[in-house]
Design a binder for these strands. Sequence first.
DNA 1: TATTGTGTTATTTTT
DNA 2: TAACACAATA
Length: 722
Amino acid sequence: MGHSEKYLESLNEVQLEAVLHTEGPLLVLAGAGTGKTKVLTTRIANIIQQGLAEPQNILAVTFTNKAAKEMSERISGMINSFGLNIGTFHSIAAKILRSNIASLGMGLGTNFTIIDHGEQIKLIKDICKQLEIDIKTYTPKILHIIISRWKDLGLLPSKISESDMKAPSHKIARSLYKEYQKQLIASNAVDFGDLLIYNNELLINNSELLNYYQNKYKYILIDEYQDTNAVQYVWARMLASKWKNICCVGDDDQSIYSWRGAEVGNILRFEKDFPNSKIIKLEQNYRSSSEILTAASNLIGNNKNRHGKTLWTDKNIGEKIKVISCWNDKEEARFVVSEIDRLVNVGKYKPNDVAILVRAGFQTRSFEEVFISNAVPYRIIGGLRFYERMEIRDLLAYIRISLNNNDNIALERIINVPKRAIGNTTMKQIKDYSIENNLSVLAAIRKMLELGILKSKVHESLSKFVNLIDKSHLGYQSDPAFNVTKAILEESGYLEVLKEEKTDESRSRIENLNEMLRAIDEFGNIQEFIEHSSLVMEHEMLESNFGGSVSIMTLHGAKGLEFDLVFLPGWEEGIFPHQKALSEEGAKGLEEERRIAYVGITRAKKDLYITFAESRKMFHEILHSMPSRFLAEIPDAVCTRISSTKNLNYLGSKHKFFIQNNVSKPETENRKINNQINHKSKVKHSSFGIGLVIREDGDNLEIIFEGIAGIKTIKRSHITNL
DNA sequence: TATTGTGTTATTTTT
DNA sequence: TAACACAATA
């Protein structure tokens, strides 16, 4: 090989084999931290470099936009990859569907909209009302899950047989599903599941199209293959069946999304599905210390349903894992935060290198409080995303109804936002009219205005609204999208209502809307912007202070990430493994919980703390619980177990806990007395800046800060007098 | 029509 | 605790 293949040099033997095995089906089983992305990106670079295919003849599919973006950046650092098809299942499917929508023959137009989760639920709720389904016995949430699972399997309503309906809820769900699809199409809209289902319909029914795409994609790569559902599997297999150069990369041990239709079976079955395939296992871990790796391997070894890999590392002996028992959830949070504080202060880690990974979202709260009062910078990842914010969705709805007059879902969202005196009664009247006359909601309004059958106040309000939509519709065809959208905000009165509110919240909403206007300006093409906003649900990543901040997120959200120091709190039976996983899914559920634990442990590079609380305040009850069974699956040789209580018989005599009263330092020791601060003192806080003390309550000070932090209660020890 | 009060019920999440 | 649905009321 010539000197131009320099990028191959940094690969280990097995990685190299995976990169060079270009022809025929290949499954790369990549354990955590074994260089999966490196293999994927180098493989693509190599295919291009060797002249095996042009970039446009390569298809690389990921699950998240983040992964797609990272891969794309890494490849373009290696080689000119212009024209490469890289994206999420949904974005690629959307592109194929949009350019061939007429061949589908379902009445959808090229400007179909993609509705998000919230709108799916809203639509289901509405249909429940129409069909008089009792939403107390069958909640829209449950019904949505049933429909989504059917969609994951690729089943449209007509394909659901009696045998698919085991429970009475399934019967209800099927009739609902039928109507749901009908109303989506009437709105010229699809949901995420439809993107893939319609793709398959399209390809199965049009051999010419199928031939075209099969020919085009000479090399196909699928990332996170363990997360694929049945439709995605069918789709990928169909596209790959001509050249058969499909390379799937994944880790069966990290399959943690079965509850949204992912089938581990796809990765376990690979050899059967793709004859003459090769399987390569990446087992050398470059991320974690040997202790962490041993713990992870032992734990996951308790699962039966897996390919089985043996991860190894050539790293030296590192720190032991700390398993710590706490009195209750408060002590747990205090311990974790004070330990982070200590390790940051001695200079061992920067806040950026630290993560707290929880099983469920509600667990973040107890940490948040302690972080604030201890003045440790933190950020909670996975909360509200930009495109999920109310004002953003509202503005998107205005744009959507302007572009696609049939988008009933968008129209209903903003018909009375801001208030236009269109209440439930009027809305019901309009909807009934639209159904009777087989019109879209906007068309129904038009007709009703024409006939003059509405009350004068409503009539006036609605005709103003319709004029705005018509004006915007025309505007988007000729004027800059930025101007048109700005006019919507102003002329609808939306902006004015926010301006008058004059709260922190309303100011931040205005800020967000401006941010969105900037984004629209950047995109130029409004249709493309809408596509982006419905398919890219990125988290806001505000990187502010110097050492960054400690990340708090769910274990699911941490997949693919790594941190020097990781805390895994809440390892108690019922929380982790989660009670619902056990009661609803049984042994299968337990194995998935164990995989989640495995993902958590393998996020850590150097240091790992696992904690559990003997009692926990949940809602308004105190819950006592046993330590997680997973703790017993971590070998004693790689961990130190410390307890702050004397109740040591949790895990049998096998595991010895060292007693250490008060794992977290008692508060009295922790505080430096800061007596010179009193009422009306001007003070400084490392995160919130300068403020004024407005109330004293023993050790706690109520402070009003100058910035957006507002009023906060903070301990004396974390404040400096000015 | 819009607001206020009461009761119910709590995974994981990307697209 | 907090978010939400729904009923009662202004």
